[in-house]
């Protein structure tokens, strides 16, 4: 069955009942969208077309070390207003320099805008790019299909952070960047995996 998706804006009533749904709020007895997004009435879901990353525990993020704190802690910039914090064991400390790019997992969130990180890993070299956080799920794809496809076809290593920072390294960085930008632009359309595939394959032919 094809589900009905319609564009909603802040203030659009998506249900006459009180529902608990991301990107909406309850106003009296109704449920109202808080964002510009696509409302899928078969799944009762508002998928935002614009928006900011809200840290959740378990999120994989990519960040830049900004400063060293005391006792082996490091402040990591994740977005313009969400910072990460690396806390390390006394006996097993890694040293980071300001400017280091790291990948880590969010363990806890303190006060909505501070993400305590675990399992940090330094990403050596490579480049960083920024995509809108709402486009990240599409960039990763169902069961990582999209990102795997890009890595295979461009021979790049990539790490996609839920916070919107994407790290990449390898010979096809230019092609990978192009693919990421296209996905960001067309994230809300269907048939995208196929289009990206044919785009990257054409690029391969051009190179050989």
């Amino acid at each position: 069955m094809v589900s009905m998706r319609k564009i909603v804006v802040p203030g659009t009533v998506v249900s006459d009942h009180r529902l608990s749904m991301d990107n909406t709020y309850v106003d009296g007895t109704r449920t109202v969208s808080a964002v510009v997004g696509l409302f899928d009435d078969s799944r009762n879901e508002v998928i935002p077309l614009e928006g900011f990353w809200k840290p959740r525990s378990g999120d994989i993020v990519v960040g830049v070390v900004e400063a060293a704190g005391r006792n082996g802690t490091y402040k990591v910039v994740l977005t313009e207003f969400v910072n990460g914090l690396i806390i390390q064991d006394k006996y097993d400390r890694e040293h980071y320099m300001p400017g280091d790019i790291i990948e880590a997992k969010v363990r806890d969130i303190e006060h909505k805008v501070l993400a305590v990180l675990e399992e940090p890993r330094r990403l050596e070299g490579g480049t960083l790019m920024n995509v809108k956080a709402v486009k990240v799920p599409r960039l990763i794809g169902k069961a990582n299909t999209m990102i795997k496809q890009i890595m295979d076809l461009t021979k790049c290593s990539m790490v996609v952070g839920r916070n919107g920072l994407v790290w990449m390294k390898g010979q096809g960085v230019a092609e990978a960047t192009e693919a990421v930008l296209r996905i960001e632009h067309e994230a809300h359309t269907s048939g995208l995996t196929e289009r990206i595939k044919s785009m990257l394959e054409k690029g391969e032919n051009r190179n050989t």
Binding site: P10, G11, D27, V32, A34, V35, V36, L49, G51, V134
Partner: peptide, 11 residues
């Protein structure tokens, strides 16, 4: 503001 993705009660 809506275009920025900032969550709002209304337009």
């Amino acid at each position: 503001m809506a275009n920025a993705g900032i969550r709002m009660k209304d337009l």
